[in-house]
Design a protein around this nucleic acid. Structure first.
Lengths: 254, 254
DNA sequence: CTACTAAGCATTGTGTACAATCGGCATGTT
DNA sequence: AACATGCCGATTGTACACAATGCTTAGTAG
């Protein structure tokens, strides 16, 4: 139980990923980040009481955060049986990627039309942060920042429903990447992000869409969704055993 | 305010829209239905305590239902200030419709590929129900069933993220229709739904997509988003006044 | 020794009490 | 008379206690 998250108590502003000050968001951001960084493996049970003790809040807050995570598809909420980190199947991963292709194409077209100079500057800044994370070897932050880039792009498209959907898709994609990525390559090449920004700044819609589609191709070509799906399924099948083993250790770990 | 919702108390199975037995769903369905039937006008405040008393459940349940409605965009949750029925602006309505075009096109293409005979039969049954509702003059049920048709179609596309997104879009569309529809025409011609099913059954993807796009055209051509946006904005602007007037009547109204 | 049953325990679901926050109203000041 | 400010009522935010449910395990019968 030594690897417990910081027992924050009215932490004025979370130094890591938590943006706004509300406890909800802090808990949400921390759990989400832990999942992306694979400190919480798919299938891990997320006990309300344990989480509440760790974060120093009551189960009410935890429950809201879990509900939100469940709605975004990174947590599975089983009635009367608690929450677990989602372990998307290969089929679910394919569906997410299909939906993302659809949405990213539309977002790119809209962003070319509506992105402001300020937003483009922010996008460049995010690519810089992303590159820094990878150079530091911080894989979890890299995945998260890469996702936030795509989310920022969605904001430039100026369509609220699309932004909301994209948020959900990006979350699930991050989880899928964390689960399925073949480790040998950098997963979200920021070069492609930079080229994409250039095309958007030049208002070249056709080029931008082509770059985005190639970007999507690259992302899922790095995953083992096709050939090695067996091993993935195996992992998913046995994932519940990983946390069902007897509590030979301390009981209060996430 | 004698038009208070039925004070159900552990109603075993809601006879109207509530499907599954959990209290959450019952409350959710009733509020949603009330919004669609305009028994709850946009801007109306949704007090947790009042709703809890009406439905005979505690605020906990109400809060979950409101949270869900808020996530689907039909209810606006303002921190520390309670929930109100959303009153989508013209711009928001446009964004929803743009997103729906995108999603409906994709859903139609996928449904042509994957819809089973059973699903097609269910779709036909839903069109029948929809027609019956309109012939009975039950406008609220008609809007709801029309939305459920599009949702069922999404299920035929066999893509979970798209289904989830479509659910949110359909909910918001229903609210927009209820708010903006020019009253002189039937809003969702079930004839077009029937033709669409025929095209899907014949596996004619091109025709199906064309029909769906025309269907979308018809839907928003019936709305007053363009010319009469002034009156709509006016309504939205003053909507908060409608429920801010002094409580000269009974306090326990939604 | 295996399989089935039942009891105990742990965890989630729900209701309610208390605390924090916000909007409205009255009063005082310029 | 108009504006600013402090108080008060109402409503939401949070935490906690109790109830219900499912899982685990021990015990017994075959």
């Amino acid at each position: 139980m030594n690897e417990q998250l910081q027992p924050l108590k009215k932490q004025p502003r979370a130094g890591k990923a938590g943006r706004s000050g509300t406890q909800d968001d802090i808990v949400y951001a921390h759990i989400f980040e832990a999942i992306l960084e694979q400190r919480l493996a798919p299938g891990t049970k997320l006990s309300e009481e344990a989480l509440g003790e760790i974060f120093g809040v009551s189960r009410t807050i935890i429950r809201r955060a879990l509900s939100r995570l469940a709605h975004e598809g990174v947590v599975l909420l089983r009635p009367n049986r608690g929450a677990v980190v989602a372990s998307p199947s290969v089929e679910e991963a394919r569906q997410v990627f299909m939906a993302r292709r659809l949405v990213e194409r539309a977002i790119t077209e809209l962003a070319v039309l509506h992105a402001t100079a300020e937003q483009i500057a922010e996008l460049r800044q995010m690519v810089n942060d992303e590159r820094d994370s990878f150079s530091r070897g911080d894989r979890g932050a890299g995945i998260r920042l890469s996702g936030e880039f795509h989310l920022k792009l969605a904001e430039a498209a100026k369509n609220a429903p699309l932004i909301s959907f994209q948020r959900s898709l990006v979350s699930q994609t991050s989880l899928i990447i964390a689960q399925y990525e073949s480790g040998n390559r950098s997963h979200c090449s920021y070069d492609e992000h930079t080229q994409l920004i250039d095309a958007i700044e030049k208002r070249d819609g056709e080029l931008a869409v082509n770059l985005m589609m190639h970007h999507m191709d690259h992302i899922d070509s790095k995953l083992n969704l096709d050939e090695e799906s067996a091993s993935d399924d195996l992992h998913a099948v046995f994932s519940h055993l990983l946390q069902t083993k007897k509590p030979g250790r301390s009981p209060a770990k996430i």
